[in-house]
C-alpha cells in the first residue's frame, strides 16, 4: 500500500519537475507547457510507452495533464477496436467527456461567485 503511494508520488513528482525545468530553462509560458505535456502524453501512448507508466504509477501518471493526452488516445484506440472508423472521432471525447464537462461547469460557477484579488 505505502509502496504504491510512493510510486504515485514519484511518477507525479518527476513529471511535474520536467515541467519546472521547462519553465525555468526555456521560458515557455504555462499555456505552452500544458500543450507540450498533452502532446507528449498522446505521442507516448501511441508508441505504447505511457500505458506501462500508468500501470506503474497510477494517478501519478493520470493526474498530470499528460494523462489527458493518454486518456484521449487510449479512448480513440479502444473505440476503433469496438466500432471501427467512426471511433477515430468519437473515442477521444467520449473517454474525456466527464472531465471536460466538469471543467466547464465548475469553471463557470466558480467564476460566477469569485472576484479577482491583488496577489
Amino acid at each position: 500500500m505505502l509502496m504504491e503511494y510512493l510510486k504515485v508520488f514519484l511518477v507525479g513528482g518527476v513529471i511535474c519537475s520536467i515541467g519546472q525545468i521547462l519553465i525555468d530553462r526555456t521560458k515557455l509560458t504555462p499555456a505552452r507547457i500544458m500543450v507540450v505535456f498533452v502532446l507528449m502524453g498522446a505521442i507516448l501512448t501511441a508508441f505504447g510507452l505511457y500505458k506501462p507508466l500508468v500501470e506503474f504509477g497510477g494517478a501519478g501518471a493520470t493526474v498530470p495533464i499528460s494523462g489527458f493526452g493518454y486518456t484521449l488516445v487510449a479512448g480513440v484506440i479502444e473505440e476503433i477496436d469496438k466500432i471501427g472508423f467512426l471511433g477515430i472521432f468519437s473515442g477521444g471525447v467520449k473517454a474525456t467527456a466527464s472531465g471536460i464537462a466538469a471543467a466547464i461547469v465548475f469553471g463557470y460557477f466558480a467564476a460566477l461567485v469569485a472576484k479577482p484579488k491583488l496577489k
Partner: peptide
C-alpha cells in the same frame, strides 16, 4: 515535485 506529487497522491 512535492506539490505535483501530492496532487497525484490525492488523485490516487
Amino acid at each position: 515535485f512535492l506539490v505535483g506529487g501530492l496532487f497525484c497522491i490525492l488523485g490516487q
